[in-house]
Design a protein around this nucleic acid. Structure first.
Length: 858
RNA sequence: GGGGACGUGGCGGAAUCGGUAGACGCAGCGGACUUAAAAUCCGUUGGCCGCGAGGCCGUGAGGGUUCGAGUCCCUCCGUCCCCACCA
């Protein structure tokens, strides 16, 4: 009997798996297919236990499905373009390609040590020209179909890093890396027409019934479909003529056409063409517009920013009454890129308009009468009324309810041809240009004569050049001395390459399709993709709930419409897992301390932390997401040496339900390590040690455990599944068969055989070792999942708690499935119960079959 | 400001259909083994009262529905997440 030694066992079995190529997905098969995928990692350099948890979850699913008879695809790749590589290049002078390749090499080894059942033959990185070249190919197809276009748009510009930032890279109005205040700048950018798919993406959510409701709701809100009216307020030709370039009217969008008679002003964005035209001829307006543009678009600034406006002096005509004129304001709160870039203000029924009106002394005319209010006395004071009611003060709309009035107002405007009903989305087209050197080049050449021309397919991939200079901020690709010079593919004349690269979200919006045939000569090999897609189970962090998951859904639909693949949705099942957190420790001076240099002392239930070396007392902080800055990162390798990878896998899966955060503790890992040793002990016991046991009891426990764990894994309740393993091992240690007792040995072997297979998805190395110890020839990894006998999972006799008026007062035994009459008889005959019922009249007896009995007294 | 989720012992959590609240793990306490420690094993561990049998209370707070509520409904408190000047 030898102590289980993971340091020896784990690498040995990984060698066996690798030599046998047991995780290679068959290109086709009689078995049903199952595609399980975890969001691929950015090669940041080191794996931490948060990665381990994510991939362990996918691995449990992959191993389980394989055992259940599926042809499983479980691949791995690298989301390898992005800023950290450029930062490393700037700080240390390394080549981003080399830095990335080194990190991949390190992390690949670390991932392999986790014992994941991955088909490594399909591995690729998004920075491989073979991958990004295919991305360029499909981009050109989308462009040809009009799904990509160039447009001058407002972007977040980091003036220090000299690049566009995505909204999520702007934190409190500052660039996430430079800390510089982000500016709004007009820049010509490439966009993908995701808004063409807004309806499809919204409606498609209804079918994603294996997605968390939360994520579906977030996407729904992000797309933000609203129905309303676009209408034009004609400019009044008053006094002096309209300034040049202003046009004849102001188009606005509203979801409340029912309140048009309550309008008291129209406001345009500082970025509106009319504002720009006016600014050209008026210093005050120019100053105001410039001031507005300076303000950051960040949440905090917006929250704090005052609603500011400037009266242009121009007037517009009310659409229903051209006699009535409204002032035209410029408002700092009006967004240029939503709706029409202009609004009409109805202060009585919109809080923001009300605040604005009060500030600038504009009229407040209520037009919706709340139920029970008197039209003569109803006034809006400091709070706008946004509820339902009857329309009044509104000519032909009077007396209608809000919804009817909306329809009536739209109908009238449409009849007069001054506007029409419209659907507007919060979703904007996806700006994919980035002024970065370490990304996928946008495969376009700008010709002085022909304009932008796609690089011919034969010339793809457009490779990144070597020797880019990352030592200065800005776009290293654009300042490469020779790269951008290329002849026009169309006329052969002098031309320049596009120097922007794609947003890395483009790279990750189709990689799951590439895994079907990762080295094909086309972006997607349709036969392979149609076999494997959609991904049956996708697993990753909830932080990608909108962007990555929405972009992937969009690109999948766009490529489908291009005929490149068949399914509309890329991921039929989605699971968003929680993070791994760790307690934090700080010195008295505030410095963070690495957990490995902390010694925890316990006195009763109080804990103290001391520096392991100096003995200095430390402050114990909260559990927080593992991060370098707080020095609370734990790497799987740190645990592997002491307890083995299986213990780490078991712990990260057992501590919390998968969607919630795990609190990483060393003592917790020790608990998992204990389980591993207990399991191994059961396979390695001396036949001389035995405990007398009832065969039926053990068999029932075995079959009940198989059922419970099967159901738990199907339902992503890995923590509950592992709890059942603990219980089962406790049963096994009290059921040891004496030598020569064939029936008991058989029952025990049945139990051990099941245990090895049940624990295999969680602790695969241990399971193999146990399987071999059982004398089985093949790999437990390739063994079929154990079946259970439903009869054995049920009890013959059940214990029924007996309640009197809902309080538990005793229990009786009854055969399983006993009739209500029999149960009632037994309860009323039970001496304990009779004693308690003394002096009480039983008015009603409620029997819930095989569960509970409740006696109601009068 | 809008939307959503959650709240159960000292801690992580279980109870998936409205039916024995606290499975399983961690920490704690007591014991066995040991010269001793570690490891391992056994027992115990929601609170209060009681020598005991047992009783009472208990799932953030308050109400409601029900024979029966951690679970359903309403109000409130707290925590977390997402979006945010979206017209």
């Amino acid at each position: 009997m030898a102590r289980y030694n993971p340091k020896e066992v784990e690498p040995r079995w990984r060698g066996v798996w690798e030599a046998g190529e047991v995780f290679r997905a068959a290109p086709q098969s009689d078995k049903p297919k199952y595609y399980v995928l975890e969001m691929f990692p950015y090669p940041s350099g080191r794996l931490h236990v948060g990665h381990a948890r994510n991939y362990a979850m996918g691995d449990v699913v992959a191993r389980f499905k394989r055992a259940r008879g599926f042809n499983v695809l479980h691949p791995m790749g690298w989301d390898a373009f992005g800023l950290p590589a450029e930062n490393a290049a700037a700080e240390r002078g390394v080549d981003p390609a080399e830095w990335t390749a080194d990190n991949i090499a390190t992390m690949r080894e670390e991932l392999k040590r986790l014992g994941l059942s991955i088909d490594w033959s399909r591995e690729f990185a998004t920075c491989d020209p073979a991958y990004y070249g295919q991305q360029q190919a499909w981009f050109l197809k989308l462009w040809a179909r009009g799904l990509a276009y160039r447009k001058e748009g407002l972007v977040n510009w980091d003036p220090v890093d000299m690049t566009v930032l995505a909204n999520e890279q702007v934190i409190d109005g500052r660039g996430w890396r430079s800390g510089a205040v982000v500016e709004r700048r007009k820049l010509t950018q490439w966009f993908l027409r995701i808004t063409d798919y807004a309806d499809a993406l919204l409606d498609g959510l209804a079918e994603l019934d294996r997605w968390p409701d939360k994520v579906r709701l977030m996407q729904e809100n992000w797309i933000g479909r609203s129905r309303g009216l676009r209408l034009t307020f004609a400019l009044a030709h008053q006094g002096p003529r309209l300034p040049p370039g202003v046009g004849e009217g102001v188009e606005v969008y509203t979801t409340r056409p029912d309140t048009l008679f309550g309008a008291s002003f129209v406001a345009i964005s500082p970025f509106h063409p009319i504002a720009e035209a006016l600014a050209a001829g008026d210093e005050d307006i120019a100053a105001f517009v410039a001031d507005c543009r300076k303000g950051g678009a960040s949440e905090v600034e917006v929250e704090a920013a005052e609603k500011l406006g400037l009266d242009t002096g121009l007037k517009v005509c009310h659409p229903f009454d051209s006699e009535q004129q409204l002032p035209l304001w410029i408002g700092n709160f009006v967004l240029m890129d939503y709706g029409a870039g202009a609004v009409f203000g109805c202060p009585a029924h919109d809080q923001r308009d009300l605040d604005f009106a009060r500030k600038y002394g504009l009229p407040v005319t209520p037009v919706v009468l709340p139920p029970g209010e008197d039209p003569a006395s109803f006034h809006v004071k400091q709070e706008a009324y946004v509820g339902p009611g009857r329309i009044f003060n509104s000519a032909f709309l009077n007396g209608l309810d809000v919804e009817a009035a909306k329809s009536a107002a739209i109908a009238r405007i449409e009849a007069e041809h001054t506007g029409q009903g419209a659907t507007v989305y919060r979703l904007r087209d996806w700006g994919v240009s980035r002024q970065r050197g370490w990304g996928c080049p946008i495969p376009v050449i700008h010709c002085h004569r022909c304009g932008p021309v796609g690089v011919p397919e034969a010339d793809l991939p457009v490779r990144l050049p070597e020797g880019m200079d990352f030592s200065r901020p800005g776009n290293a690709l654009a300042r490469h001395p020779t790269w951008k010079h290329a002849p026009c593919p169309s006329c052969g004349g002098e031309a320049e390459r596009e120097t922007d690269t794609f947003d890395t979200f483009v790279d990750s919006s189709w990689y799951f399709a590439r895994f079907a045939a990762p080295f094909a000569q086309a972006p997607i090999e349709k036969t392979a993709a149609d076999y494997w897609l959609p991904v049956d189970q996708y697993i990753g962090g909830v932080e990608h709930a909108v962007l990555h998951l929405l972009y992937s859904r969009f690109i999948t639909r766009a490529l489908r419409d291009e005929g490149m693949l068949s399914p509309a949705e890329p991921f039929t099942g989605l699971f968003t897992q929680g993070m791994v957190t760790h307690e934090t420790y700080r010195r008295q001076n505030g410095d963070w301390v690495d957990p490995t240099s902390v010694e925890i002392q316990s006195e009763g239930t109080t804990r103290r932390a001391l520096d392991r070396v100096t003995g200095e007392p430390l402050v114990i902080g909260d559990f927080e997401k593992m991060s370098k800055s707080k020095r609370n990162v734990v790497a799987p390798a740190d645990i592997a040496d002491t307890y083995g990878i299986d213990a780490a896998r078991l712990f990260v899966l057992s501590d919390s339900p998968p969607e919630r955060d795990v609190l990483w503790t060393n003592t917790g890992v020790e608990g998992s390590w204990r389980l591993i040793n207990r399991v191994w002990t059961e396979f390695d016991t001396d036949p001389g040690e035995f405990e007398p046991f009832d065969i039926d009891t053990l068999r029932r426990a075995t079959h009940r455990t198989i059922k419970a764990i099967t159901d738990a894994v199907e339902g992503f309740r890995f923590n509950s599944a592992i709890a059942r393993l603990y219980e089962f091992v406790a049963v096994l240690r009290s059921c040891r068969a004496p030598a020569g007792d064939a029936p008991r040995i058989e029952a025990r072997n049945e139990a051990l055989s099941a245990l090895a297979r049940l624990i295999s998805p969680f602790a695969p190395h241990l399971a193999e070792e146990c399987w071999r110890r059982l004398g089985e020839d093949g790999l437990v990894t390739l063994a079929a999942w154990p079946d259970y006998d439903l009869l054995l999972t049920r009890e013959d006799e059940v214990v029924l708690p007996v309640q009197i008026n809902g309080k538990r007062r005793g229990e009786i035994r009854a055969p399983a499935g006993a009739s209500d009459d029999l149960v009632r008889e037994r309860v009323l005959a039970d001496p304990d119960i009779r004693l308690r019922l003394e002096g009480l009249a039983v008015r009603k007896v409620i029997v819930v079959k095989d569960r509970i009995v409740n006696l109601v007294t009068g």
